[in-house]
Each structure stands twice: as structure tokens, then as C-alpha cells.
Design a protein around this nucleic acid. Structure first.
Lengths: 339, 339
DNA sequence: AGCCATATCTAAAGCGCTTTGGGAATTGGA
DNA sequence: TCCAATTCCCAAAGCGCTTTAGATATGGCT
């Protein structure tokens, strides 16, 4: 059932039917009722390809997905996706994932914009002065960044959590408990979230006249193994930290394993705080020693990104507002006063 | 730059230019060269929306993503996606994720097929007599199932791993080590992979004249917590198993934690084998006691699914061939002879 | 020379929708 | 009663591509 059939069936022109269905004012309410009712009854659905060709609107949002033999997609992505889906489902918004060579995402960005494949897109895991953001900005496609960049000479819309504040507060708590040698096991430090987190730790320390020893900073991709290695390296050194702030639960698994291997008890010998993105399959309260965490649901962020993207597409939102969410600090058994 | 402009520029008809570019035979090779060269020089790219309207081909593959407040996307999904992306990237194939109400995926399937939004789709996590497969089959859209169903009265193309064989072999090994009370901590048993795995365990036991005690079967969504609970429940019972076969590394984390809480040592008091889907961020060799696993890369499966999907779209593949991959059994320190 | 097969190209008709530019009918004010 | 402003609807022109049906030219064969 297409527009033509529907309109002849109703003895109306395609124009009128189209307008009635799309809520244009210049059609009689009585007529509109008839049209809407008939459309529903016959299950008429406008062909998106045709609509798209005519309007240029795709009804989809995009994500350029870096891929490559050596590239692993972050497991956080799936949680973000859950949130995005929660919102998108109710709005018949589909998400198109365009795989790109991680070495050259630009080509893909240009392609999907030139082809008008999507009405808007989102970007994740931004780096400092992220060229993708500059590119999307320049290409003029609506977008939202999940996270934020630094050192760009224009504003752009984003949603981010207060990474610096979260790690600042966590560190301050540890300091209040008497810890002086505090280390941070961070994610990949080319990413701004890691930069902000380190900054938070540093600021809290300096507020108490302490400094962050460069030997107490580790930055690696967030895997269990990297968490383990970093922790061993830190804890076996002569000036081993008495507390560690860690960027993900997955790394925290490795930290806990390292402590166990070294016969260090939590929280007696080592206090541990981790960031928690709220995975349904791994929870800080279920660690052998329940973990103190800075908590922020990445899933909620996904839903919010979808919502703002939809608003931008429909023109309800514009401008470059950045949204920064506060982060909970949830105290559990993994921290204690320093010896 | 569109076809019309390009063709007037070349003093040719749109027809000829279109044909030249799409490799039709009825165009002079010399002409084709000119056209191709000019297209490249001016960076001409056919508008996909237009092409799509004309041909009905979308150049995209689809996935209907169940969502809902209580629905969590499986973390395995992201690994599968990595593999899919690896292949798709080189073929300019995009993936569209259509979020659906987990209670009613049918509507979404019908929509994306009716709209011709994608040329083919894949399905994951099939259940017995999965209605989605029947639906896709009936709607006539090309598809591949990752995993397989049972009890459907038609054949369909899939790729799956030999879940039954894997768990059979793991169990047989445990039996050879002298274990008699073997339990299985499985994933959600409405999914066929879990059914096959249980069957494998059961078969191995019965081959040795043993039976699978119904109290030794646990099936839950694969989270750390569920692994822990299941293990505690099993291990605290009077007829506690001496060996456990477990469906995922994430659950295995919980099993290990439970064993520790109960002061059971691995592999002394308890042997543990887990299935390993090969996550980059959590590896069985890095458990405190390295885990024996049945291993199969879910990422490789993703790449293969994309490859076959592409083949089906281009007509290189048809029929209903099911592909079953063998699974490695990798022996590490977590198993030992029974007391 | 006449005919047919072949090779090469073109005009035009879709694909199914939106939207521009009117046209006819109705209403209200003078 | 007449004119202008509304209101409601329509015909047709795109959007940019593919594809059908057909035109023209060329060459081989009888």
C-alpha cells in the first residue's frame, strides 16, 4: 500500500493525503481524520527510501565504529547501546554503525555525511583536540559527543560525567583516611576521560599539600590483565601506595588479584576505589571485598544522548550546550584508614 | 555532483554513464574508461537514497536489538560486533541496529522488511523453535542465524559452534580425572546454546554410566553474581559436586569467588572448566588459578556471519547451509583428579 | 544491394514521497 | 452585491538513480 493507492482509494490527491498524515495545517480536520483512519486501517507506512530521497532526512542516527584487527571495541559500548536503544525504540530511530578503519575514520565520516545516511551522529571516547569533532562540526551534521574533548577552538554539544570531580572526591576521601601515597590506575591516557580523572587525583592531593608521584600513575587499556600488571608494579615498588584509585571495575579485578598474589589484604594493606560504569554483569558490591566506587550509569548516558540527538534532529535543540553529570561516591568495604 | 551533471559533462546519457559505472556489458570499453575516470576525478558517488529507491537495495545489514528497561544487552555482543565490523569495513557494509521491544520483536522485523531498510539481517541468541527465524524465513529476507534453533520444520542458514561437543569433551575429561559428581552452571536455558551444552554434559556422563543430577544444573543469565549464587548453592549442598562446568568466564568469576568464600581450593577441592568466548579484557589464563576452557572466538564468528551475509546479498550464497565450528579444549591449572 | 545480427547508446518511465504554485470554493466586510 | 481574504484541495515538478524499450550505426553474409 503506497501513497498513490491510498489517495485514489480516498478520492483525494497524494498531496492532501501526504499533508494530512504529516500534520500540515492546510487540511480540513475532518479530512485528516478520514485519512489517518484509512491509513491505519490499511496499515499504510510511508516508504522511508522515498521519503528520504524527497526530504533528505534518513530517520537514523549514526556511529562511526573504529575497527581493525588490533582494535577491540570497548565493553562499555554495549551498555551505552542499551541506553540508546531504550530511548530510540520508542521513537522509531534506528542506529547505523559504520565500521571504519581505526587509522582513518575521516573517510567514513565524510562518506556518511555526503550520502546523508544519517540525520545526526554521536561520537564516543574523545581525545584531546579530537579531529573527529572538528570534522563533524565543519561538515555541519548534527552531533553529540559522549565525553568531551579539550583544546578545540569552538563549542560543541556533549554530555559527560564529572570525571575530575569524581576522582577528586575519591582521592580526598582517601586522604582524609590518612593515605599519603595514592596511586591511580587509569585507562588509556590519550582519552580525555583519563586526563580528567588524573587531574582530579592531582588536585585533591595538592589541596592537601601532597603531590602525585609520576611513578604512581599507570595508564593502559582497561583490561583485567593491565589492572593486574599495573597493581603489581605499583605494589612491589619500595614506595608502594597504600591506596589505589582505578578507572574501571574490570581493571579492579586485576588489582584485587594482584593484592591477593602479594598477600596484601583489602582494606587493611591496601585501600581501593574504582570507577563503576554500572555493568549488569559485574557489580562492585559483589567483589570479595565490596568495592568503594565512583558510580555513573553509562546506560543512562546512552539514553540521554539519544534523546538529545532526537531533539537536535527535530530542531528542538540547537547550540552547543555541554552537560556534565555529577558522579556518586559509594562507600563500601574496600577502603580504610592508612596504617 | 550527480549523475545528470556527470553525464552532460561527458556528453553521454545518464543511462550509459550509469551502466558504465555499474559494469554492464553493453557499453564500449573505451567509453567505460572515460566514464570511470571522470567519475573518479570529480569524486562522483551515486546517492544511496536514490539508488535505493530505484533498486530496493539498501547496502546495509540489519540486527533487531531487543531492548527494554529490564533487558540487558549481552556483553558478548560487542565482541561479535568487532568481528562483524572487521569484515564489513572492507566492503562498505553498514550495520543498522533497530531497537525493538523485547516483548514484541515481530513488529520491528516486519517494519524493517516492509521498508526494505536492509538487504539481509542476522539473528543471535536463538531459542528453541525460535519464532524470529520462522518470521524471517516467511518474510523472505536473507538472513543468517548466529547459533541455531531446534524444532523448526524448515532448514535455514546458520553458523554455530559445537556447544554439545565442547561440553561433552570437557565433561569427559573431568570424568577421566575421576570426577563423578559434576555440575553445570549454564546460561539462560531458554537459549539453545545452553540446551546443547547441558546435553553435552549429560551425554558424556551417561557414556560412563553416570547421570546428571537435576540438582546439579543451574541456569541463569550469565552474570558474576549468578555464577556466585549458583556455585554456593551447589557447593554447600550435601552432595556437592567435585567439578563444575560453567558457561562463561563472567560466571566463572563468581564461581571462583564462591569457592574462596567456602575455603575450597582450586583445583584441589574443586575442578572448574569454563567456556571462553575470548574477550580481550578478561582471559582465563589470568585467573588466580588459570582456567581450563572450551574456547571459541565469538569475534571470528562475527566476521564469518558478515562474510556470509554479504555473499547472500550478492547472490553468491543461497540454500540453508549450517556451519558448525569445532571448539578447542584448552587445559590449564583449574582441573585435577578427584579426591 | 539487401538483410540481419551485433554493438553501442539514448529517451523516458518508473521508484514513492514531498512540496511548490495554483485553483476553486467559502466566508466576511463594505 | 461585489471583492478580497481564507480555507481546502490538486496537478505536477522534483529528489537521483536504474532499467525498459528502442534507436542508430556497423559489419558480415548472401
Amino acid at each position: 500500500m503506497n501513497l498513490k493507492q491510498l489517495s485514489t482509494m480516498l478520492q483525494l490527491s497524494q498531496t492532501t493525503v501526504s499533508r494530512a498524515l504529516n500534520g500540515y495545517p492546510e487540511v480540513n480536520e475532518e479530512t485528516r481524520r478520514r485519512v489517518v483512519e484509512a491509513a491505519k486501517r490499511h496499515g499504510y507506512r510511508p516508504n522511508p527510501s522515498a521519503r528520504r530521497l524527497a526530504t533528505g532526512k534518513a530517520g537514523m542516527i549514526g556511529y562511526v565504529m573504529p575497527t581493525g584487527a588490533a582494535v577491540d571495541i570497548d565493553p562499555h559500548f554495549v551498555e551505552f547501546l542499551s541506553g540508546l536503544g531504550d530511548y530510540a525504540r520508542g521513537h522509531e530511530l534506528d542506529l547505523v554503525l559504520s565500521p571504519a578503519d581505526a587509522q582513518d575514520e575521516e573517510t567514513t565520516y565524510r562518506r556518511i555525511v555526503a550520502n546523508k545516511q544519517v540525520d545526526a551522529l554521536y561520537m564516543s571516547a574523545p581525545r584531546a583536540a579530537d579531529s573527529r569533532i572538528a570534522l563533524a562540526h565543519q561538515l555541519g551534521i548534527p552531533f553529540i559527543v559522549h565525553g568531551r574533548s579539550e583544546g578545540l577552538d569552538f563549542d560543541y554539544p556533549f554530555i559527560d560525567i564529572d570525571n575530575e570531580g569524581a576522582f577528586h572526591d575519591a582521592t580526598r576521601l582517601l586522604i582524609q583516611l590518612g593515605h599519603k601515597r595514592i596511586a591511580v590506575i587509569n585507562g588509556d591516557d590519550t582519552q580525555t576521560f583519563a586526563i580528567f580523572r588524573e587531574r582530579g587525583v592531582r588536585r585533591a592531593l595538592s589541596e592537601s599539600g601532597l603531590a602525585l608521584d609520576f611513578r604512581h600513575i599507570r595508564s593502559e587499556v582497561m583490561t583485567e590483565e593491565n589492572g593486574y600488571r599495573a597493581a603489581r608494579c605499583l605494589l612491589e615498588a619500595s614506595d608502594a601506595p597504600t591506596a589505589i584509585v582505578c578507572s574501571s571495575l574490570i581493571m579492579a579485578l586485576g588489582v584485587v588479584r594482584a593484592a591477593r598474589d602479594l598477600n596484601l589484604s583489602l582494606p587493611g594493606d591496601l585501600s581501593l576505589v574504582s570507577h563503576d560504569d554500572v555493568f549488569p554483569w559485574l557489580k562492585p558490591e559483589h567483589f570479595s571485598v565490596p568495592l568503594t566506587t565512583t558510580r555513573s550509569s553509562i546506560r543512562a548516558a546512552g539514553a540521554r544522548v539519544a534523546e538529545r540527538l532526537a531533539a537536535r534532529i527535530s530542531g528542538l535543540e540547537d547550540g552547543a550546550r555541554g552537560e556534565v553529570w555529577p558522579v556518586d561516591l559509594v562507600v563500601r568495604g574496600s577502603i580504610a584508614g592508612a596504617r
